[in-house]
Design a binder for these strands. Structure first.
Lengths: 215, 215
DNA sequence: GTCTATACAACGATAGAC
DNA sequence: GTCTATCGTTGTATAGAC
């Protein structure tokens, strides 16, 4: 009996049957990230998931718990793109290119609608859900800083940059990328025609000047 | 009659009589910034203000309007400290000192409980209150970037720094200061013993190296 | 203008049938 | 496990007395 069920599931191939639990979490992701915690009600959430409200309470004890579980899951494995090995493939002439590539990937990551939504709700609810703030930091910002730190440490070790403190370099680089243009995105304003690429190029240029190897 | 009233008010001296409207706005500031928009109810707000709920609706049409009015008022005249003239008092030997002073003042400004609370709620509600996001940006971040831009433009004009684009320099400086340590504060985590002063010194050093005048 | 008391709607959570 | 129907509470907003 159990065996037959496994076979059936295996035959589904590329379309694995989403369980109710997964459907609920998926719907919660969309609704919470769009509307915020308090403004989200369980009816909308149930409708979006295609289940009844009562079913939600079979899988989750409360709205609080569902929210916590969602954020914890949401934060995992977001930072694969900026840890990709090709970022460490460069030669002396390509240091700025590599920095630009990392910057662009980071930018795309943090300005995606999901990332912006997650950031908004976590920042807003952090005072009332301390464990959520912690989980988000560990899975999000901390990973970003770690990746950037490794990046600069690697450049320094190869003698391509003169970086006294790779950790600070990583933090500053990320901070520079999250300045005015990012704030505008976060607040829902338009870019006023400013170019993201120009901003990134400028940031790379500035940081390169600061860390250029002494000859 | 009106004259007598004016005299009475003048005699109050250092304790001007706060009107109900002011009391409501003051209470709204505290409660909204602590609890967020949706999690704030009008009963708590009325109790904090020392008035009845009905009185609130005499001065404000709705919770929405009260919130908008609050943010608009809250954002005004926050950036005085970082536009103070003494920031532009420096000589060649004191460029880094001046940068450090500006950085410290900016840091204290954006990490104050009120600023963090305002940032959290505005970021969270920006998608549903676009005009609030806009008002906040204009009164907050935009002023910060403007002050920093002027600072670097002034340094460049005096030949104390080689800054090709003061606006970018200002944005990057602020971005660097709002990196890891700031994120931790925003998310309610502790500093792990890291020093704000060390971070600021490091940021100043990095940016000075990038913009050091060519000799 | 300010209060008390309340109307009316929305929400989180559950009971009970299947 | 899943549904429909509903309970009890809370919240925004208003009516009416003073």
């Amino acid at each position: 009996m159990a065996k037959r069920k496994c076979v059936a599931e295996a035959l589904d191939g590329a379309a694995p049957p989403p369980t109710k639990r997964e459907a609920i979490l998926q719907a919660a992701m969309e609704v919470f990230l769009d509307n915020g915690y308090a403004a989200t009600n369980m009816d909308t959430l149930a409708a979006r998931a295609g289940v009844s409200k009562a079913t939600i309470y079979v899988y989750f004890k409360s709205k609080d718990e569902l929210f916590g579980e969602l954020i914890r899951q949401r934060c995992e494995s977001c930072f694969g793109p900026i840890e990709a090995p090709d970022l460490l493939a460069y030669d002396e002439a390509g240091v700025k290119t590599a920095m630009t590539r990392l910057a662009r990937r980071f930018w795309d990551l943090v300005t995606s609608p999901e990332a912006l939504g997650a950031y908004r709700i976590v920042v807003a609810e952090a005072p009332r859900f301390p464990e959520v703030g912690k989980a988000f930091y560990v899975a999000g910002p901390a990973q970003g800083y770690r990746a950037a730190t490794r990046f600069f440490a690697d450049l320094a070790q190869r003698g391509l940059l003169d970086v006294p403190d790779p950790r600070s370099a990583g933090e500053f680089f990320i901070g520079m990328l999250r300045s005015d243009l990012y704030s505008k995105r976060l607040l829902g304003l338009d870019d006023d025609g400013r170019s993201v690429d120009a901003m990134i190029d400028s940031a790379v240029e500035v940081l390169y000047r600061a860390y250029a190897p002494r000859r």
